[in-house]
Design a protein around this nucleic acid. Structure first.
Lengths: 197, 197
DNA sequence: ATGATATTTGAATCATTATTCATTATTAGA
DNA sequence: TCTAATAATGAATAATGATTCAAATATCAT
């Protein structure tokens, strides 16, 4: 009996991230992804049912991971909410910045699929947002955060902001200093633009 | 000599916005757009060179308009920067919320095209951001805004945030109160999440 | 009313690509 | 060494849909 050599499932996923980042999901060809992965076109279908399943796996992996990390963090009652928010931003930045191509895929493709595909296409993403929202609630009860915060706005504001910045950074990672971006996002999220004396 | 009846160029554009919003650019068919516009498939090509040109026109129109509006606003030296920021947010919200389908198209498709297409695919978008950045500079010199603000981060933070919120609102406009969103965005932008005493 | 000119039509073309599948290669166990 | 089972291949299939174009239609000027 022949056995699978290497880790083609992973090779395909990494090749797909590269190709999706450069060409966008719809313009990416399975044959090109196979070529990058160093296998035959047909072999892709040994590991994934369809092109869309590959994309789904990419989303799922990253948000499942981020959700689990955030869960560990938020469950710790000794960390104050402000610090949790900082750590949450670090989590996202660490995850994406170690792989700019992945950042591009998430930013460019996710919206299109979370609306139009299966309902659970981005279930971990939503769970991640639920946890983040809980942190804000905790901070409001705490009086650390302003009670003026609208939870719906918050939920999509910070992540939309962060993702958009990352997408511009990812196009040309060397052009911008990541640390300044990191500080900038944290500062903005906490203080906004106004000078508070 | 036969003359053009009605305003098919506009009909096509509006039909395309509807179809792109529902199906996404890549899954939208020219034949369906023509059907919505009430014309024959081939007639689309009397008015637009290609499917991509239609999308380009959608982006260009909206950002050209927003750029011109923002220009009027920012050129007025009597308005303080804080108020300019509020008005800028109003501009964007007004433009997008009177047409949720347009909001969806912009949010879902723009990223993919500003990276991969002709360099001037979104020239007015960039000019719009330049003006917004000038307002921040003015406010920093003014001491109204904090000098900790990183201009690159700002440039993409606020707009990314706003666009992301709008995209979620646009999926189901009736579910959320627009005014709360408006207030929420303004509050966040200026104050962040922390309670400033 | 007629011709000239431009618009409109929609079926046919043509290219593109995701997916399939018959074939070949490989290896574990007997 | 041989067999059975699965992995891997890549050319063929089949569907899709953007774009073209020859024919039909409408309007204006004369």
């Amino acid at each position: 009996m022949r056995t699978k050599e290497g880790n083609k499932e992973k090779d395909i996923l990494e090749a797909a991230i590269k190709e999706f980042a450069v060409s966008g999901y719809h313009k990416s060809k399975i044959s090109k992804i196979a070529e990058i992965a160093g296998i035959a076109t047909g072999s892709v279908y040994m590991y994934y049912k369809s092109k869309e399943e590959i994309l789904h796996k990419i989303f799922n992996d990253i948000w499942e991971n981020l959700y689990n990390e955030l869960k560990k963090l938020t469950e710790n009652p000794t960390i104050p909410p402000t610090e949790k928010i900082d750590s949450m931003i670090d989590l996202i930045l660490d995850e994406f910045t170690q792989n700019p191509e992945l950042a591009l895929v998430i930013v460019n493709e996710q919206n299109n699929f979370q609306n139009k595909s299966l309902p659970n296409f981005t279930q971990y993403y939503e769970k991640f947002l639920d946890l983040a929202t809980d942190v804000i609630k905790e901070g409001i009860e705490n009086k650390t955060f302003s009670e003026n915060i609208d939870l719906f706005v918050f939920r999509y504001y910070i992540l939309g902001a962060t993702r958009n910045i990352l997408s511009h950074w990812a196009i040309n990672p060397k052009q911008f200093q990541l640390n300044k971006i990191r500080q900038g996002i944290k500062y903005f999220t906490k203080n906004g633009i106004i000078e508070h004396k």
